[in-house]
Design a protein around this nucleic acid. Structure first.
Lengths: 235, 235
DNA sequence: GAGTGGTCTAGACCACTCA
DNA sequence: GAGTGGTCTAGACCACTCT
């Protein structure tokens, strides 16, 4: 007599949704009821339903119960590789180049992105990442010295700002905004492409404890860059 | 005397990692030990550590224990909105247009993407999505009639293929590949932009039970389109 | 007030993996 | 074989929310 696993419960409920026995909007029986049906403890049902809720398949609310959500394009998981890992995965040699470093008052849009007051100075870095002899990414980054004072002393000629920040401020919160644009003259020169060529643009901001650490604008030549996202585990 | 919550345990361990008391590679004390220290049940510690493992902060292995992972760019969660939702969120009016429908043998790359044998025919759709009077997305899609025979009868003039597929095949697995490109003549005409303008390209494939359902190539004018991804809950 | 989910406890056994 | 995590049970109390 095998015990009932939370995975069994999960699979049965999912099957009922897939098969149409439970349709969007329907209420899933309560934990106690299901536990009775499955002959298992209520905690077991709880874990099954909790994971389905995390996966976005059902919605749970106290008192009103568990309901099947409308089938919706599910959230996907994006692997955001470090530039270095991305390049080395292709077999190319990674090289990093610091093009400029200064401490200055950032323009208004950066100030807003970092939540800085007018006149506050921040660290501005311009870098380029090479895959063997091909320019792979151009980076324009501002770092808040209020939040990361140690950045003032860091040797960004030796280590890329992203790698440095990951070590200095682990477990930060990150936002990425992706878009496509036509390279201007300066960008094209940096990436070794023709002005007007499509570039894949990533704007990345990171926070720790609600304070903005950095804002980076990353450009990839559009012809070669791919970003992959997949839905999570086959539920 | 408040009971110890799994959230307390999680917060303490996270704090130790953030503060440097636990460094990447270090072993976190065993569940039994921590339960003793916190004065709580082992299951409580288990849940805390399990969630940290799901968040990618630690790695757990039987027998060898729980170890702190190297700080790494964390996976981000991508919200993939439906075209309709995306457009209506801006206050614009959504309109959908079917430009072409045929059943034909797909080219080799599509055959490969869908895992179809040579000579097998599939459903080919070309569509356009409008935000009020602006073209917002051009869609070129192939659907496997082997996997979704009902698509043959569906009225894709009335409902967009994505909306239809979500209803017909809920809970499928999805892969997105994003890139940037320059619009060619035909694409520019569809989107009402100038040839050479940057477009944001999404290639989406979906599967159910390991069988490929559909492959779509979606184009957005680069000047307006934004895709946002964020790391999960503030751990 | 009552019904549902959320979580904790204490104890138990299992499953994996290393020595 | 032994140590660690993985999960289940049975019972309990709490927290939220609808009526």
């Amino acid at each position: 007599m095998k015990r009932t696993s939370y995975l069994d419960v999960k699979a049965v409920i999912l099957g009922q949704i897939r098969g149409g026995a439970l349709r969007p909007g329907d209420t899933v029986p309560g934990e106690a009821t299901l536990a009775g049906k499955f002959g298992c403890a209520r905690v077991t049902v709880n874990r099954a339903l909790r994971e389905l809720a995390e996966a976005g398949v059902v919605e749970r609310r106290r008192r009103s119960g568990t309901r099947v959500l409308a089938a919706t394009p599910r959230d996907a998981e994006l692997e955001v590789p470090s530039v270095r890992a991305e390049i080395e995965a292709t077999g190319a040699t990674y090289r990093y180049e610091l093009l400029g470093r200064r401490i200055a008052a950032p323009p208004a849009d950066i100030r807003a992105a970092l939540g800085l007051g007018a006149g506050v100075r921040a660290l501005h870095l311009r870098c380029r990442h090479w895959a063997s002899d091909t320019a792979h990414q151009a980076e324009d980054r501002w770092i808040s010295l209020d939040v990361v004072p140690a950045a003032r002393e860091a040797d960004f000629a030796a280590i890329g700002p992203n790698d440095w920040l990951i070590r200095a401020m682990p477990l930060s919160r990150v936002e990425h905004i992706f878009s496509a644009a036509n390279a201007d003259e300066a960008e094209a020169a940096l990436l070794g492409i023709t002005p007007g060529d499509a570039v894949f643009v990533t704007e990345r901001r990171t926070w720790i404890d609600g304070r903005a650490i950095t804002r980076a604008r990353l450009l990839h030549p559009g012809a070669t860059h791919r970003l992959v996202a997949r839905t999570r585990a086959p539920i």
